[in-house]
């Protein structure tokens, strides 16, 4: 078990190294001079030379890469050309928003997806099954960004039920930064109105972000359930007169959760990618939006940082997912 974790972590480090190398190389084919961008138009040549030296851009490439790596180890992602701040300071502001949105989407997917998948398997052909099928079919085809726009049109513009974007109302003060997740911070500091507001703002983006993955999870659970319920031992159990409810929960669902967990782990990557689009649509100040803005302004330090952080998050989540198997299915050991 320990060996497994160590091996996985070692691989994660390898992945991060590879990604840092890829993004580093990419950052040097960007069709713009980062120093010029940083200094701004009309900066004097002397200033540009000075900044180039300060940022280490006058050194040979391999040295620049080593410098970048050593800075990374200290949590230093360099300076953002756009915000003129340390990228780490930007991430401190933006990352929690993405984590909150992604977690909310995961909660939505699990809370809706598991019952939906189970019920459609247990009651094939029922209304629930039909709804499940519609979600499963449309979910993988609907572009998240378009769904977001349409959701805004309906729930904000036409009905006026939900806010169009942002994490809180205009002119509302965010709760003190403890975790950076507004829902958690507001609860911890007892600001219940803010808590309600942030939930309200989370609802639409989380559902839009999670809808595609919900489809995949529902499909997976339904299929695995059907699979397991058709197996000999389950039929035997039924033959012995074990109540259907118990069979469903004890045997079928438990077994169905293993592939479902795999799917969920992989979906985190999809959710992080989808966050790029959903955050853009809902003006959600997370790393997705940060990355989008960064690409538009060729802020490559920021792009590199987001890529590495996303890879790190994805790697860790999948490690946790693999460890979860042990909990779900005692037959699995590493």
């Amino acid at each position: 078990m320990i060996r497994f974790v160590v091996r996985r972590l070692a691989f994660l480090v390898l992945v991060l190294l590879g990604i840092s190398l890829i993004t580093f190389v990419l950052s040097h084919i960007v069709p713009a001079d980062p120093v010029r961008l940083y200094a701004g138009p009309r900066a004097t040549p002397a200033t540009i030379r000075l900044i180039r030296h300060q940022l280490g851009f006058d050194q040979p490439l391999p040295q620049q890469y080593l410098l970048y790596l050593s800075n990374l180890l200290h949590g230093n992602f360099g300076y953002s050309l756009e915000s003129h701040r340390a990228v780490s300071a930007d991430l401190y502001d933006y990352l929690p928003a993405t984590i909150e949105l992604t977690l909310a989407a995961v909660v939505f997917i699990l809370v809706v997806g598991i019952p939906l998948g189970v019920l459609s398997a247990v009651l094939p052909g029922s209304i629930v099954d039909q709804v499940g099928r519609v979600i499963a079919t449309t979910g993988v085809a609907l572009p998240a960004f378009w769904l977001g726009l349409m959701a805004q049109l309906v729930f904000f513009d036409l009905l006026g039920w939900l806010p169009a974007g942002g994490r809180l109302n205009e002119s509302a003060n965010p709760p003190p930064h403890i975790t950076g997740l507004y829902t958690v911070d507001s609860l911890v500091s007892g600001q219940f109105a803010t808590f309600g507001q942030s939930l309200f703002h989370l609802l639409l983006p989380a559902v839009v972000l999670g809808y595609g993955s919900l489809a995949v999870l529902t499909r997976q659970i339904r299929a695995s359930m059907l699979d397991v319920m058709g197996q000999d031992y389950v039929r035997t159990a039924r033959g012995k007169g074990m109540p259907r409810r118990i069979i469903v929960i004890r045997h079928a669902l438990r077994n169905a959760l293993v592939p479902a967990t795999t799917v969920m782990g992989l979906q985190i990557g999809y959710l992080l990618g989808g966050a790029l689009l959903v955050e853009d649509v809902f003006s959600w100040p997370g790393i997705g939006r940060y990355a989008t803005l960064a690409t538009l302004t060729l802020d490559y330090n920021a792009i590199m940082a987001v890529t590495i952080v996303a890879a790190l998050m994805y790697g860790l989540v999948n490690l946790v997912v693999d460890l979860l198997y042990v909990v779900i299915d005692p037959r699995i050991a590493y």
Binding site: Q152, F156, G165, G166, S171, D280, S283
Partner: peptide, 13 residues
Amino acid sequence: VVQTVPESSSRRE
């Protein structure tokens, strides 16, 4: 309060 709301349709609303 100066709030960033990128969507022009949201700002209008």
